[in-house]
Design a protein around this nucleic acid. Sequence first.
DNA 1: TCACGGAACA
DNA 2: GTGTTCCGTG
Length: 452
Amino acid sequence: MSAMLQQTELIFEYASDRVNNGQQLDEHLASPAVIVEQVPHSHLLSYSGLACEQTHTDDHLLTTVEGSESGDEETMETLVAAETLLNMDSPDSHSLDQQDYTQFYVPSLDDVITSPITQQLIVSVEDIVGTLGQPQWVTLQRETVAEQPKKKRGKKSKRPESPTPDITFKRGKYSKGNTLYLWQFLIELLQDRQACPRYIKWTNRHAGIFKLVNSKAVARLWGKHKNKPDMNYETMGRALRYYYQRGILNKVEGQRLVYQFASLPKDMVFISGDEDQEDQGNHEDNDEDVPEESPPFSDQSLDDLASYEHSFLPPPPSSRPGYQMSRQTSSSPATAHRCQPGPESKSPSPAQHRTVLRPPGGSLIQQQHLPIVSAEMLRTLQNVQSLQPGQHGSVFRTAQLLGSLCERQAASAEQTTSQIGTLQLQPVTCPVKQGKLEVKTEEDPDSGLTRE
DNA sequence: TCACGGAACA
DNA sequence: GTGTTCCGTG
């Protein structure tokens, strides 16, 4: 089993790596290899009542859930349905390809064991490597893991248990109980059509950037999940901020309520409509979408969400791979990436190790470690690429810079990592300020555009 | 309102 | 030793 897990993990990382490369972002890379798939819970899909369609593009599998984004009522219904489904526990029930889901969580050994795996695919590293280029994922390497899985001990919290039994997994160590890690929870929400556009949505799914459209709602849901009625965005936000250090999340500066997963599962289910298309361009637009408008969810809805949610999550374990970065450490505070290229350093928990799994080489370069170009930047770049030279001068310039930066990184990465293909950006030394991602070189003040 | 981060707690 | 929440501060 462990082997399996590892593989899986590898996969993820690779995926992430690919993402990292800025290049990929845009382009699609070649096809992705899917590596391992577990299908943990198929129910996810079912639970939500979502209709899923997987797209296997050559590149990556993307699952798209089409849902109506709409309505609250849907939401409710969906939720209910989801719950029902959850309770049902039938893994097979859905016909979906589970593959997608698999990636969702990073399975931990435990998980693997406990959770039903439907299928696994193993792909050779090479395959993976080949895929690296793809844009599928952005960065996510480190997925966010952490949090939930383990549980928090914090002062107050206790583990929540979710109402629903975990059908799917029982998680073992990491998550003791059914707990979901916050990051998982968020991912779940992002895949839930009820929540997705409404309370949380992707602003740039490729980049792993999402926005808490209705932070209160999300926090409430989280609180429900944790059995913390008092949960609020502040509290939840703290947890999110800790993810920065762990490399699970990055904050998108300048945008409120916008965070970025350092790495995402390669195959995620994206609810159509949830993503803003471009995050960059309109950063805000997304924001607007839903936020408050959405009717506050009723408690019920919250409940429903809570219940369903936890079902999803796989316990990934710790997935956080060796995230090590620390923003603190990092020279600059910056946001975008707080990662540092450091040694892999400690891996926090064993679990993590496994998750992380590194490629043979030993050190897989993790995004976090990489200095520089953040997914965000990449994203931006991507968005900007379309610009013509004459168009927005500064932007264009920035884009150029980013592009070159990415190329350099990629190049160096290749060299460096012959290893597996981790495409990740390498820490190339760039003029970029480390601290902040800003691409802008010092000279380019405009660069602000980029990020935002 | 959001964001940050130290400290406390488990 | 680590993760979560609280709390003060900006």
